[in-house]
Write a protein that binds this DNA or RNA. Structure first.
Lengths: 159, 159
DNA sequence: CCAATATAGCTAAGTGCTTAGCGTTAAACT
DNA sequence: AGTTTAACGCTAAGCACTTAGCTATATTGG
């Protein structure tokens, strides 16, 4: 009897003419995501950064050498606007974690490169971050995790 | 081969020393939630409102008569701060969708009551909203929906 | 070739949240 | 009873995003 059970019961009493069952799934998805975000944020705060910072730095690291991406690629990867990327990069550049370089052969473009300080942040935070994710998933068996990932993939068209 | 498969492959190449598999589940959860939110938002926009507005009005309606809640209850239900609730209520009150009344017997408290105009908004939007949710879940069978809800509930401690 | 259009990245302004802190009323403690 | 502490709802300020629109460079099409 979680929160969504209560919500569905209320709807059933107030609007018995409607099939409100989809709310049970979508509502739990929304609340699970918010709960997970909150737990991840705590780890980032403990390391003096936030999720947006880690997101950009980790995305650059996982590209492998030479650890460079265009702002547009970063935007697509993080599912945010190019404007939001520009503002994130301003902060990260002020902090000395990334550098902007001109893109060879295209005077419009830039390449974002992580600095050694930025690499160090990822090296320090990543193990803790993974441990937090692992502890979030602790209630699920390996099979259940796989099953959950599969089901979620069906809700995410073409990303 | 979705986006998360690609991400995991990158991590495997760059940091084979770490078990990055939890990212596959948590990442898909995050992206699925974002994708769902975007689809829901489109329906709300089509009706000239946003998710926050619908959230408050629908929460009041599903309480049943007399459709009243305290701001604190609204905050707990929506998982936002009481400050955010106060600002949402300011907008909704300006729009004529809710009323604030003093709480009998407690000079500190208030009771938020939905107006007939607010009820009308929910009556108009709710069927479309449910249709959108249904279409989001369309790739999943009834059994899979139930399974997904169960798995998500395990990730959401005590809400 | 060169004008028209598209692309890349950015700033400015607007929005809705959070944190911090206020005034008011209720409850708890001596 | 009177003082302290807690609870309630709110505003002010700060923050990270969005949308709108800018400049500069590339590409397309007559």
């Amino acid at each position: 009897m979680d929160h969504l059970d209560h919500v569905l019961r209320q709807w059933q009493a107030e609007r018995p003419d409607l099939d409100t069952s989809p709310m049970g799934v979508i509502g739990r998805l929304s609340r699970a995501s918010a709960a997970v975000d909150a737990r991840l944020a705590a780890t980032f705060t403990a390391h003096g950064i936030d999720a947006a910072t880690f997101d950009v730095l980790a995305t650059l690291v996982r590209q492998g050498p030479p650890y460079r991406m265009s702002p547009a690629e970063l935007a697509a990867d993080a599912m945010i606007t190019s404007s939001a990327v520009a503002q994130r990069l301003n902060r990260l550049e002020r902090g000395g974690w990334i550098r902007r370089q001109p893109r060879p052969g295209d005077g419009r473009g830039k390449l974002v490169e992580i600095t050694s300080a930025g690499r160090a942040v990822v090296d320090q935070v990543l193990p803790d971050h993974l441990a937090t994710e692992e502890s979030i998933l602790e209630p699920l068996s390996a099979g259940e995790r796989h099953q959950l990932a599969q089901l979620l993939a069906h809700l995410t068209p073409s990303t």
